[in-house]
Structures are given as structure tokens and as C-alpha cells.
Design a protein around this nucleic acid. Structure first.
Lengths: 145, 145
DNA sequence: ACGTATTTGTACGTATGTATC
DNA sequence: AGATACATACGTACAAATACG
């Protein structure tokens, strides 16, 4: 299943295998992965390679890891945030402080929303969906100044 | 400068040091970091710790690494993309294919823009800025259905 | 054209720490 | 308290890409 001589690094091969299992739904959100020693034994590879595979999947936001093991990242409820006119939206990875504050795991980016005349707002990328609403009929289109 | 007994992991301490240098502008975008062996010698730590520190900074989008060393991530030119009504925007990390296709380095998320009646569009998060434009005066406000 | 030095990448091992059950 | 499982941190060795002479 994993070929050390294939040219593709062992840890990437393992990451590919697990990514495939997630994509095909064999591993569902919230479901526990195997433990590191189990992957070591199962594929006859070093623990280092297993850990690097996990790190890859984590950085891509596919799994989350705690002291009790790794799980497929659960899909949180997504809140809709309406955007008003002249708003600028960027995305980037959060700082450590923002990660703590928002409670976002590794591999989850944030939105930075800048509304005119307001401080930039940082929103968790896994729990937020931005929506440009249709303007209410008969009312202004932002021409107030 | 780095204290192995401080409770904070060595590799995080090194990452903190470098992050500070970037934040304070002592290391500017595009500028080369020291090599791994240099950090090893300078702080008397293992190469493993240095590499993990680099991996952290890379995952946060602060640096990029090639076979010739690591540099502070250059700031690309940002293109403005206008959003129309009823558009939904999400953000997440790119898949490997998207990363290749868009040419985004590690630690850079993407926008997923869903316009009504169109395929979702994936935009590089480091080169794109979304803007909600003011509606043109006297014209429709999306009341077409 | 070729080899060499530099630098990061991969992959293994070992040991110990620490949180959780 | 003991077992389990991930986290940290060191070491070694070799591979591979790049740059330089």
C-alpha cells in the first residue's frame, strides 16, 4: 500500500491514503483516525513519517489532533454574515492570539472584514459564510454622502 | 535567548523570536532567514527544533522555504474583485491541486466565491481582495424573481 | 561538462515529558 | 496508579536540488 521506493515520500503517501478515505466518506467528520503506533505497525513505517502525515492533514484543515488522538475535523454550524456596500474582505491565517480567541484549529483561515469607518473584524473561516444581500427595493443604494 | 526549561517548547520559542523580527521589520518581505545549521549553532538546539519552528512560520504564511533557504513571504500585488448581489463567500485552505494551480505557497488560504448560477470560483487569498461595490444609482437592486 | 559545497528534505531511532482515560 | 497516546527534542544518515567554480 505504501512504497518507500516509489519516489513519493512515505509521509505524503500516508497522507494521500487518509485524505482519500476522508474524500470517499470512509472517514467522516468527527470520526477517530487510528493511533500513531497503529499506522506505524500497519504500514511498517517510522513514527516520524506518521506524524508528518498528520501534520500535513492538520495544516490543510482536514483533521484535528488532541492528546487523545486525531479526528476528521467536525463541520461546525456556519453563521451567515451579511455584507454591506464598500466593504473589503481579505483572508489569511490567524495569528496565535486570534486562533485562541476565536477557537479555530490549525488549518483554518480567517476572514478580515473592513467596513467603512469601522475597525477590521476578524471572523473564523470555518464558522462563517459571507453573503452579499440584494438591496431592498425602493431604498437607497448607499448614496448618503 | 532560548531556555529549554522555560516550559515553552524550544521550537515555539525560536518561532517567537523570528516572528518578532518579522513583526518589528528587522526581517522584511523577501529577505532571507538564516540557514538551519546557523540557527542550530546560534541557539544550541537540535535541527529538529529549528525545522519545526520553520514549519510553524510556514503554516502561518509568514515565510516561504525553498531548497536554497527560507525567506520572509513576499507581499504579492493584490487584485480587487468586485462582488455582485447574492454572492456567497467562504474561505478554506486549498487542496494540493488548487495550490499548484494557483501557485499559492503553504499557509495561504483561498476564497471560494459562489455566484448565483455559476460554478464556485477559487481565488488565491494572498493576491485577492474582495470588494462590495456601491450599487449603481437608478438601476435594479436584484429584484428579478 | 563536471564535481563540490551548501541547504533543505526524508526517514529512521531513542528517550523523556505530559495529558487523558 | 497504570496504561495509552500524543508532544518534545535530541541524534544519525542519506537523498536531492541548487549554486558555484
Amino acid at each position: 500500500m505504501i512504497d518507500p521506493d516509489s519516489g513519493r515520500p512515505v509521509y505524503r503517501q500516508l497522507a494521500d491514503v487518509i485524505r482519500g478515505q476522508i474524500d470517499r466518506g470512509e472517514l467522516r467528520p468527527g470520526q477517530r483516525l487510528r493511533t500513531e503506533p497503529e499506522y506505524v505497525d500497519e504500514y511498517g513505517i517510522g513514527r516520524d513519517s506518521v506524524r508528518k502525515a498528520m501534520a500535513l492533514l492538520r495544516a490543510d484543515g482536514l483533521i484535528v489532533t488532541t492528546r487523545r488522538g486525531s479526528r476528521v475535523r467536525p463541520l461546525p454550524d456556519v453563521a451567515e454574515v451579511a455584507l454591506s456596500e464598500d466593504t473589503v474582505i481579505r483572508t489569511r491565517m490567524p495569528t496565535q492570539k486570534e486562533r485562541r480567541l476565536l477557537g479555530v484549529p490549525e488549518g483554518v483561515p480567517v476572514f478580515v472584514v473592513e467596513r467603512p469607518g469601522a475597525e477590521p473584524e476578524v471572523l473564523a473561516g470555518d464558522r462563517t459564510k459571507l453573503v452579499v444581500k440584494a438591496a431592498p427595493a425602493g431604498e437607497g443604494h448607499g448614496r448618503s454622502g
